[in-house]
Design a protein around this nucleic acid. Structure first.
Ligand SMILES: [Mn+2]
Ligand SMILES: [Mn+2]
Ligand SMILES: [Mn+2]
Ligand SMILES: [Mn+2]
Lengths: 220, 220
DNA sequence: ATAAAAGTTTAGATTAATCTAAAAAAAGAA
DNA sequence: TTCTTTTTTTAGATTAATCTAAACTTTTAT
């Protein structure tokens, strides 16, 4: 049984390592968790003793199988709770992250499996992030950045890569959510901004910076 | 903002003092929280410094207005979550307490008000315990022990006073829940046990000890 | 009224998580 | 390759929550 703090370290390392691929440095973890490097060193020694990660002095850490499983379980809970908050309680998608940061630490397998069933076994959360299944399997979809879309083509929004409240509110104002179909109407060559049209025929102009943070998938 | 531990102390004192009426002793708190008296002494000093309770050395503590408000908020959250777990997620009523002990510490007013609305502003939890409203008001109903019911009379089960899993499972097996109408068919004088009949005509024999732990209200 | 028992507090330690400052190692630049 | 900068670790403290053992206060019983 991991403590609240240990769980947050494991999850941070999971995200920073790109799902457990790369090694993660002490400073990266400290930055991500808003703490100090010395604190991180202490904690990763503890996590290494628990076989949750491999730690090589001065060269960072990488999650073990056990650590990865723990991380996936926390990510699963986080994303299921976010889905619950939006789908069932009527939260806006920019309001859920902080609360899910707390809810993800509730310990009860029964709870999470019943919540999953109540939500109809969703595959993605409100931001389009995939929800790991009970066995830790993550469904990967073929997606790419909207900034790489072709003029005239239709796509489906699949994920947003910026979770800040202002960005999410901006997208919400223009009805840009995962699942929405869009068509690229125009790409301006001098600044890379583009005009996209929604199902309801409304047009929105998006800056390059914005279109880079929106992921899309093919329209089937 | 109270810590997890501080919240547990405040809630324990609230329950032990019968909703803030009586003073509570150090030992009572230690027993209830499964900790040591010395630990309790330290913590109540801290809570006294935060004006959550009045502490008189050697004579126990009593909650302040502020302490009572905090306690009511935690109790509200606990009971709303228990209701959610039973009504929406399909938990059995003997499975919810441990999970609610964790969920009651989640910090988010928005969450709890949205949860309340989602549940239809329930007045009692699955065990018949009243749910304090947003302002901390607790609705009191006229209720009494089933052991004091009269032969031949009809009543509605309103609350159960024992939260142990075995007791709750026993009642569930006989469909005895808050809200169910029962009629007393027979009271045996030598041991105080009674036979009650449910809506579905099924009869159950309850020992005195059991009927004392079931609260009922009049059949209107 | 005094002594014994019960309950409470204080003193001193421990563990988890955190910090700052100093030392050590690795990486980058000249 | 050697020096400088950056990163990481170690050393030593701090805070919250906990414990045991000893001291103290209140209550109960003779
Ligand atoms: Mn999130
Ligand atoms: Mn998300
Ligand atoms: Mn409960
Ligand atoms: Mn209850």
């Amino acid at each position: 049984m991991l403590s609240f703090t240990e769980e947050n370290y494991i999850k941070a390392i999971y995200h920073l390592s790109d799902a457990g691929q790369l090694a993660v440095s002490t400073n990266d973890i400290a930055l991500h968790l808003q703490t100090k490097a010395a604190t991180v060193t202490d904690m990763i020694k503890k996590l290494a003793n628990k076989d949750l990660l491999a730690y090589e002095k001065y060269y960072g850490v990488s999650l073990s199988k056990k650590g990865k499983n723990n991380a996936l379980s926390i990510v699963r809970k986080h994303r299921l709770w976010e889905t619950f908050l939006v789908e069932k309680l009527g939260f806006q998608w920019d309001e859920v992250h902080e609360v899910a940061e707390q809810l993800e630490h509730i310990q009860s397998n029964l709870l999470i499996e019943k919540l999953d069933a109540f939500l109809g076994h969703p595959e993605t959360d409100p931001h389009g992030h995939p929800i790991p299944d009970k066995n830790g399997k993550v469904k990967q979809i073929k997606q790419f950045s909207l900034s790489q879309g072709k003029n005239g083509h239709k796509y489906i929004v699949s994920e947003v890569k910026d979770g800040s409240a202002t960005f999410l509110q901006y997208l919400a104002k223009h009805d840009l959510y995962p699942g929405v179909t869009i068509q690229i109407k125009e790409i301006l060559p001098f600044d890379g901004s583009m005009v996209v049209q929604l199902q309801n025929k409304q047009k929105v102009t998006l800056s390059k910076a914005t279109s880079e943070k929106i992921l899309i998938k093919s329209n089937e």
